[in-house]
Design a protein around this nucleic acid. Structure first.
Length: 417
RNA sequence: GGAGGGAUGCCUGAGUGGUUAAAAGGGACGGACUGUAAAUCCGUUGGCUCUGCCUACGUUGGUUCAAAUCCAACUCCCUCCA
C-alpha cells in the first residue's frame, strides 16, 4: 500500500494498535479528508472495565486527539444476549438491573479519557438498548435475515470453535453477531458513523456489520482491529494478585493500579509505553533500551503515566510516593491501603490470621494460617512464626498502627480507632 | 419423541465400594534467586472456634457397617436417529 497520510492512522500504526483493516487505503483517505466518526462497543458485564479494555479506550482517545469523533457504544442491549466470542460456555444471563448498574459504573471511566459534548469532535455515548429493545421480531427478520448466510456464519471463529469443541451454542448467542452488525448500520444512520474498531477477536462481528451496511443501504463502512494483548510470558492481560485490574477507583485503588504497571515484565515495557501512554516515540525508544535494573525507571514512568490518566495527577503522585517509601526506603507509608478496627477489639487480642483475612490479604483465616506457616506473613516487617499469634495493643508500632504484609508486595495498615 | 454418552475441587482431568479433602497437569499464592521483571527451583492450594470438627465429586432419595464410586428419579449438556 501507499504511504499513510492521515495523522490518526500514522499514530495508530506507529504505536502498534493496528492488526487488521477492511480497507486501509480508503480509510486513510477518509481520515485525511474529513472528520470520521468511529465507534467501539463495550459490554456491560461488570461494574467497571479492566485493563483488558484499556487499549480500546486509548484508541478512542487518540482518535479524538487526531480530530475525529469517537462514539462509545454501551452494549445495554447486546449484553442481554451475551457475546459468545472466545467463550466455551454460554454466559450466565445478566438481569436488566445489573446491566444498568454496570453501565453506570463503566461510564465514569470514559470521562477521564475523552471529552464529551455536542461539538463536531466531542465524544458521545450511546446505548444500543435504545434501538435493540424496540425491534420487532418478524419485521427485523424479514429486513435483515436475508442478508445473513448461515453457511457463512458457521465459518466465523466465534461459532466454529464452539462447534469444533462440541460445546453447545444457543440460538440466543448465535444472534449476537447479527445484532452487532445491525448496531453498526444503525449508528451509520443516526450518527454517520462509518468505522467500527475493536479487538482482533471482534473481526468477524465487525466484518458482518460492514457487509450488512453495504447490502442493505449501500454504505461504505470500515472495520479496524487491534491485536489481542497478552504479556510476553503469554498470560492474559489484566490480572493481578487481587484479581482483575479494574479501571474504577472503587474497584481497585490507584496505588494497586500503579503497582500493576510497575510490575510489568521487562519485555513488555516498550510495547506498553506505546499502547497505554502518550509518551513520544523517541522517548519510548530511549526508555525501552535501558538494561537490567535501569529498566525499572521506565516501569515507573509507565506506571505514573497510566495512573495519571485513569486516576489523575495527584493520585498518581501519591501512589508513586507510597511505593517509593515502601519498596525503596523500606518504610511504612501512610499511603498503603488501610483497615480500621475498634481499639477495644485490639485490646482484647485478635488473632493475626483473622486480621489478615479481614484486610483481604488472605481470602480466609485458613489461607492466612498457611501464609504464616509458609513464612510469607509479616507483622511490622517482622516475620510471624506462630500461626496462632494473637495481636494486641502491644503490637502497635511507634506511629500507633500495625503493618501487615503478605509476601513482599502486598501490604496493609491496620489502624485502631 | 427414540438410542447412546456425560456432569469430579479455580480450570483441565484421573478415580468406578473402605487407606480419598480426592492422582496428574495448569493457574493462583508463598519462599529461594533477583531488579517490586522473566526464567528456574522449593512449598502451599475446601472451610472452621484446627492434634479436632464441618462441608464437598450435577440434584433428591435409596442400598450398605461404609458410597465420588452401586440403585432409582430428576436437572442440564453432548452425539446419533425421527
Amino acid at each position: 500500500m501507499t504511504e499513510i497520510r492521515s495523522d490518526f492512522l500514522k499514530v495508530f500504526t506507529e504505536r502498534g494498535y493496528l492488526h487488521q483493516c477492511t480497507d486501509l487505503d480508503a480509510l486513510d483517505k477518509a481520515f485525511a479528508d474529513e472528520i470520521v466518526t468511529a465507534y467501539i462497543g463495550f459490554d456491560c458485564t461488570a461494574k467497571s472495565l479492566h485493563a483488558g479494555s484499556l487499549m480500546q479506550i486509548m484508541i478512542l482517545r487518540r482518535l479524538q486527539q487526531a480530530g475525529h469523533k469517537p462514539i462509545v457504544l454501551m452494549g445495554g442491549g447486546t449484553t442481554k444476549v451475551g457475546d459468545p466470542t472466545g467463550r466455551d460456555e454460554s454466559r450466565p444471563l445478566i438481569t436488566d438491573d445489573t446491566i444498568r448498574e454496570n453501565m453506570d459504573g463503566i461510564k465514569k471511566v470514559f470521562e477521564k479519557f475523552l471529552t464529551f459534548g455536542d461539538g463536531p469532535t466531542d465524544a458521545i455515548m450511546v446505548n444500543n438498548a435504545d434501538w435493540l429493545d424496540k425491534l420487532e421480531y418478524i419485521p427485523f427478520l424479514r429486513e435483515y435475515g436475508p442478508h445473513f448466510s448461515i453457511n457463512r456464519m458457521l465459518t466465523f471463529d466465534s461459532v466454529k470453535l464452539r462447534l469444533e469443541r462440541e460445546e453447545s451454542m444457543t440460538f440466543l448467542e448465535f444472534n449476537y453477531m447479527i445484532l452487532q452488525a445491525y448496531d453498526f448500520v444503525e449508528l451509520m444512520k443516526q450518527y454517520n458513523c462509518s468505522l467500527q474498531i475493536g479487538g482482533s477477536d471482534q473481526w468477524g462481528n465487525i466484518v458482518n456489520g460492514v457487509e450488512l451496511g453495504r447490502r442493505t443501504n449501500g454504505f461504505s463502512l470500515y472495520g479496524l482491529t487491534s491485536p489481542l494483548l497478552t504479556t510476553s510470558s503469554g498470560a492474559k492481560m489484566g490480572k493481578t494478585a487481587g484479581g482483575a485490574v479494574w479501571l474504577n477507583e472503587d474497584m481497585l485503588s490507584a496505588y494497586d493500579y500503579w503497582q500493576f504497571w510497575r510490575n510489568t515484565e521487562d519485555a513488555d515495557v516498550g510495547r506498553f509505553l506505546r499502547l497505554f501512554t502518550q509518551i513520544p516515540l523517541d522517548e519510548v525508544a530511549r526508555l525501552e533500551k535501558l538494561e537490567g535494573a535501569e529498566l525499572n525507571e521506565a516501569k515507573k514512568i509507565l506506571a505514573d503515566a497510566c495512573t495519571e490518566m485513569a486516576h489523575g495527577k495527584a493520585a498518581a503522585a501519591a501512589a508513586a510516593e507510597t511505593a517509593r517509601q515502601t519498596f525503596e526506603m523500606g518504610q511504612t507509608s501512610e499511603g498503603l491501603p488501610t483497615l480500621e478496627i475498634p481499639k477495644s477489639e485490639l485490646a482484647d487480642g485478635i488473632p493475626a490470621a483473622t486480621l489478615f483475612q479481614r484486610t483481604g490479604l488472605a481470602q480466609s483465616t485458613s489461607e492466612a494460617r498457611k501464609l504464616i506457616k509458609g513464612g510469607g506473613a509479616r507483622l511490622n516487617d517482622e516475620k510471624i512464626d506462630d500461626e496462632k499469634a494473637v495481636l494486641s495493643l502491644a503490637d502497635l508500632d511507634g506511629e500507633g498502627r500495625i503493618k501487615l504484609s503478605a509476601g513482599k508486595k502486598r501490604h496493609y495498615l491496620v489502624l485502631p480507632v
